[in-house]
């Protein structure tokens, strides 16, 4: 009646059930852990240069900023890594909301989750509007974080900033 295959099957099925039960409870319980991430973007310099892009004279913004963020509280036993980015948000005449990533970093341990960077520039990402010109805009800058778990739900958020800086007139090069 009970041969080896049936016994192995029963043990395997039970092990799978227990494992998925455990994974589910990890995924759900880590949603209830509280965290208190803080962060600040301090824009030190903003310059605009004109370049020829796609056969149009286009405004490229170059930013220099200091970052100070403490994201250590986001690290719990189900945190695999954090994706951290600086986002610029602004409104133009033709577009309600424009969001551009200026800088990013992947943090994999709690020890590295205290970010203190000076004179960061948007070297990896072009800061260009969808139209060739920014026009008269004021952008807000914030630090965005996305928590990626070992198993379960992705959680994200951003720290609000009050600093707004008007775009200067382009420098002629």
């Amino acid at each position: 009646m009970y041969n080896l295959a049936q016994r192995a099957n029963a043990i395997f099925a039970f092990a799978m059930t227990v494992q998925f039960g455990l994974l589910l409870s990890i995924a759900i319980s880590s949603l209830y852990l509280t965290s208190n991430p803080i962060g600040k973007v301090d824009v030190r310099e903003l310059n605009i240069w004109l370049y020829n892009y796609d056969n149009k004279e286009t405004e490229f913004a170059f930013i220099e900023m200091n970052l100070d963020a403490d994201l250590t509280s986001l690290f719990n036993w189900n945190t695999k890594q954090l994706f951290v980015a600086v986002i610029a948000e602004y409104e133009t005449k033709s577009h309600d909301l424009n969001q551009v990533v200026l800088w990013d970093s992947i943090i994999q341990s709690k020890e590295d989750a205290h970010i203190k960077e000076v004179k960061v520039r948007n070297e990896k990402y072009d800061f260009v509007d969808i139209t060739p010109k920014f026009g008269e805009v004021e952008a807000k800058y914030s630090i965005y974080w996305d928590l990626m778990p070992y198993v379960g739900f992705l959680v994200s958020g951003k720290t609000e900033s009050n600093q707004t800086i008007s775009f200067p007139a382009p420098d002629n090069n």
Partner: peptide, 16 residues
């Protein structure tokens, strides 16, 4: 992939 740039057009509400 991750969204790194986004523009919401005012008139049509279309997302770029």
């Amino acid at each position: 992939h991750r969204v790194i740039k986004l523009h919401d057009e005012k008139e049509t509400g279309k997302q770029y």
